[in-house]
Amino acid sequence: MFSREEILRVAKLARLDLSSHEVERYQKQLGRVLEYVKELEALDLEEGSVKHVPRDAVAFRGDTVMAFLNTQGILGNAPSLHDGGFSIPTVVEHE
């Protein structure tokens, strides 16, 4: 079982607005799933085994410019467009 605060912390990080009903549901469901995956804790793994799954196919792109022709198709999906920009309520802070 997950605490309400923990669910709210994660929901905030994930930018998910949850109803109180949903919070309760995820307290239970997330708790159960994490209980289940505890089985991995018991596994004895050698120190320093790979963190990343390596894959071999290295493919670079040549440095050539090729304009995408359907930019209107991209802008056409914008929920709000102003002066050609994706429009949102004013933001002050910055990363």
């Binding site: 929901a11 994930a14 607005d17």
Partner: peptide
């Protein structure tokens, strides 16, 4: 902006998707 994010996502995603986003974020 913060509300735009969390409400759009909260309303737009279904329950299984939200569960997995929660699990993965955690």
């Amino acid at each position: 902006l913060e509300e735009l994010y969390s409400k759009s996502r909260g309303e737009g995603f279904g329950r299984e998707v939200k569960l997995r986003i929660m699990l993965g974020t955690y």
